[in-house]
Amino acid sequence: MSAKGVLVRVSTYAALIVMALATLFPLLWVTSIAFMRAPERFAGTPPLWPDHPTLVNMVNIVHQQRIGYYFLNSLIVAAATTPLSVLVAGLAGYALAQAKFRAHRLVSWIVMFAVLVPNQALVLPLFEMFSAVHLINHYAALILPAAANAVSIVLIQAYARGIPADVLDAARIDGASEWRTFFSVVVPLMAPMLAAVAVLTFVVSWNDFMWPMIAMQKVDMQTLPVALASIDREHYQNIGLMAAGATVAILPMMFVFLASQRYYLRAVSAGSLTD
């Protein structure tokens, strides 16, 4: 390797390490705070490492704050939203990419436009709609609006354009119905992008705050981020409790990312779909 090549490689790694540290540092710090005793916590800025690690915050967050309850709410919502949203976006994205129908351009434009609408702008009309059908304080209030996500549809549409039309025609001539073609040929070919969309959907659902706060007014129905925010309001000086809640909230996402990173990376680096 030339001297220049070495330099490029070293600086690439240096930049990546800096970025990785910048991303990981807050996570590690929060996790570290979650295991600190009270005196350490109150001494101004918390130290980076607990002198006397303890589980007291964890025990409190589970017992006093019933975090398991909110965790379960979040899990139910995210676990229901993810497959539903992937199915809807998969079907819609594939149809927009490959099917020929009259209003094709119009529908594509509407979906593109929907990407540009901020979620905050939807809160009021959503609340009116879900109040009207008495679904406020139901899981459905969080699951249904997330089931059709314009960003997911656009991502899958772009990916599905790469499926060779001949392969789809071959499936039709082989005798497959449109549904069979979709599930036996299209879904396996789009698997990397579907996995990526699934991860994104799960993360967005898990982290969502504004709409769940408004739609879930009963404390019993609150999701984890909303519940954590109210811990912050009630125990504003108890930073250890907050950190413990945040640490628990991170775990499922870490699991989802680790389990799916193989597919996820393949989709992000957008491989070709040809044989």
Partner: peptide, 26 residues
Amino acid sequence: VAMVFQNHALYPHMTVYQNLAFGLRV
């Protein structure tokens, strides 16, 4: 009818066996 395409149009995610069997399986 059966058709053979210019660029073969094999199912990329299936083995030769699965490609051959697909039409009968459906």
